[in-house]
Write a protein that binds this DNA or RNA. Structure first.
Length: 571
RNA sequence: UGUCCUGUGGUGUAAUUGGCAACACGUCUGACUCUGGAUCAGAAGAGUCCAGGUUCGACCCCUGGCAGGACAACCA
């Protein structure tokens, strides 16, 4: 039945159970609703950067349209000139495109519809379904009541149609100051649903808009703009997150009163990820207060952060596919996100050997001054990619963790008197650990067995493990940034009394260190991806300059030895 | 002391006219391996929030509880 889908085949048709939204779509197609047409949209407000939660929504909306032969739009919900900026519009488009979605010519802005929206508002006024209200924001709040107590009607609620029309037109003409008047729907102040208690449709904001400039000084609210924009675009399934569930009666009311195309709103549960936060406000706070280095800091759950971290579009689409869609609150284990990149990168990333925490070894029986080139595979998952060449010499660097003077039982790597294989090269034996005055190990003296070079007929002697290495004289130094989870608590908002999520920041989420590499990275450009063998996946950071490469660790490899260590430490 | 939504292994998602719970991640074994990776084989882990009811039979339908979430911006 259901088998593994690899990240780059995420869109492939497969036998899978349908989520509740697909069930609705299939039923709509079956009954011929909207002529069987499927049209979705992703409607971001351009007031911040997109994050992995938005990716879920994008993949859902667009994925559904693709799967059911429909269309999808990108629409900016730009009804509040106070918070929205072109900078965000640009970054959002870049991120959506990077994720792999092409909206073709269907790029829209709610602000494109301001004139139509205004006409419809006059229609509501003329139908006696909307009125101009002079109550201040505070007064209106008192009149609104509470979720458990009904509200009271505005004293302006029964103005005549003529007066309302006149006032509304004068609002548009700019005769009133900010906040002086609003246009409200006339519904039911005693409704148990707060959103039906004569909600605001238009407010006065004398501010210039990133697209319409100073043409307008009244702007529609979300509730008035969103559903009508859906309707104008012929959106059949308007998919949004759960918090809009209570808005749905209003969404439907407006469409019904305006007698326009009835889009259907469907709500799903937003994504929550363990060890991170998704709130735009909190993310902004991390950036503003300098807890991270900008929106694209590789520790951020933003799309641009993940991109810089080394995540691929395919891995994110695969992730979105794996987490599913439902209406119950959820917290996805970051391990699934990490699994998603590993799954993708394992098949794509070029292998390279790099040493991050070096321990020098000298091969005492290897001729001084000599060196040789050794064949290594570019990617064992794709042998057709061929070989790369790695320099070998008398003086090498290995990972400090790959040697233990007094090894515990399950340690398979190098130790005094023990043999290991240097990957792609020879089997070596540790003869002696050289120490300084402090008793610290400064280097290892080893011997190699010339007959064990990879590929040689007698090379296949069994050893307990294979380690990576680098030829010291050939090595170049690079900067390596090791990232860990940004928060140390699964739920960062679970903070002590009087503290907030920031108290759970992980002080060790970024470690900058050096790495040594000999070959394989020449000509690598920003965001190129590699596997540093046995260590993890790394990508070239855009901060790299010629002669000073910077690598970001995307994710470590799964590490059975590390898990043994953690288990022992837990004891 | 309101309305609406939700409640299935550690996590997430399934179970399509009601037929004794499946898949993925994670965890644990073992095989294989020149990455303690990958791959392959296997295991443990829920009796479906609780209590009644309908039914030959309920995760699914009904009733009543309980728990969690959303809603009181002229934000979206």
């Amino acid at each position: 039945m259901k088998k593994n889908v690899s990240p780059d085949k995420g869109n492939k048709e497969e036998e899978r159970s349908l989520n509740f939204i697909e069930q609705i779509i299939i039923e709509d197609i079956r009954t011929g609703k909207n002529g069987g047409r499927i049209h979705t949209r992703f409607p971001p407000e351009p007031n911040g950067y997109l994050h992995i939660g938005h990716a879920k929504s994008i993949c859902l909306n667009y994925g559904l349209a693709i799967k059911y032969n429909g269309l999808y739009n990108l629409r900016f919900d730009d009804t509040n000139p106070l918070t929205e900026e072109v900078e965000y519009v640009d970054s959002i488009m870049e991120d959506v495109r990077w994720l792999g979605y092409d909206w073709e010519d269907r790029l829209y802005y709610a602000s494109d519809y301001f004139e139509q929206l205004y006409e419809w508002a006059e229609k509501l006024v003329m139908k006696g379904k909307a009125f101009v209200c002079d109550l201040s924001a505070e007064e209106m709040s008192t009149h609104r009541g509470t979720p458990t107590r009904p509200g009271t009607e505005s004293p302006y609620r029964n103005r005549s149609v003529e007066e309302n029309l006149d006032l509304f037109r004068r609002m548009r003409a700019g005769e009133f100051a900010n906040g002086e008047k609003v246009l409200r729907a006339k519904i039911d102040m005693s409704s148990p649903n707060m959103h039906m208690r004569d909600p605001v449709l238009y407010r006065i904001i004398h501010a210039s808009h990133h697209r319409t400039g100073d043409k307008w000084c009244i702007y529609p609210t979300y509730d008035y703009a969103h559903g009508q924009s859906d309707s104008i675009e012929g959106i059949t399934h308007s998919i949004c997150t759960l918090e809009f569930e209570v808005h749905r009666p209003l969404y439907d009311w407006l469409i019904r009163e305006l007698e326009i195309f009835p889009s259907r709103q469907i709500e799903f549960a937003r994504l929550n990820l363990s060890y991170t936060i998704m709130s735009k406000r909190k993310l902004l706070q991390l950036v503003k207060e300098g807890h991270v280095n900008g929106w694209d800091d590789p520790r951020m759950p933003t799309i641009c952060g993940l991109r810089r971290r080394g995540y691929t579009p395919g891995s994110i689409r695969y992730f979105a596919d794996r987490i599913g869609v439902a209406k119950r609150d959820n917290v996805i284990d970051v391990a699934l996100l990490e699994h998603s990149v590993r799954e993708d990168l394992n098949k794509k990333a070029t292998r390279v050997m790099a040493v991050l925490s070096p321990l020098k070894i000298v091969i005492t029986n290897y001729p001084e001054g000599q060196s040789e080139e050794i064949d290594a595979v570019i990617n064992p998952e794709m042998p057709e990619l061929g070989k790369r060449s790695v320099p070998f010499s008398r003086e090498l660097l290995i990972e400090r963790d790959d040697f233990m003077e007094d090894p515990p039982k399950k340690f398979f790597r190098l130790a005094p008197g023990r043999e290991v294989r240097l990957k792609y090269a020879y089997i070596i034996k540790c003869e002696k650990a050289v120490k300084n005055d402090l008793g610290e190990i400064t280097e290892l003296h080893c011997t190699y067995d010339p007959l064990t070079r990879s590929g040689l007929p007698d090379a296949n002697r069994k050893v307990k493990s294979t380690i990576h290495w680098v030829s010291q004289p050939h090595s170049q130094e690079v900067e390596v940034r090791l990232f860990d989870r940004l928060f140390r608590k699964e739920n960062p908002d679970d903070a002590e009394e009087g503290q907030d999520f920031k108290s759970n920041l992980n002080p060790e989420s970024l470690k900058v260190t050096k790495g040594y590499i000999t070959s394989g990275i020449d000509g690598a450009g920003a965001l190129d991806k590699f596997q540093f063998e046995r260590l993890g996946y790394f990508c070239v950071d855009p901060d790299s300059v010629p002669g000073r490469m910077v690598f970001n660790r995307t994710v470590t490899l799964r590490d059975a030895w590390a898990r043994i260590g953690q288990k022992n430490a837990a004891r």
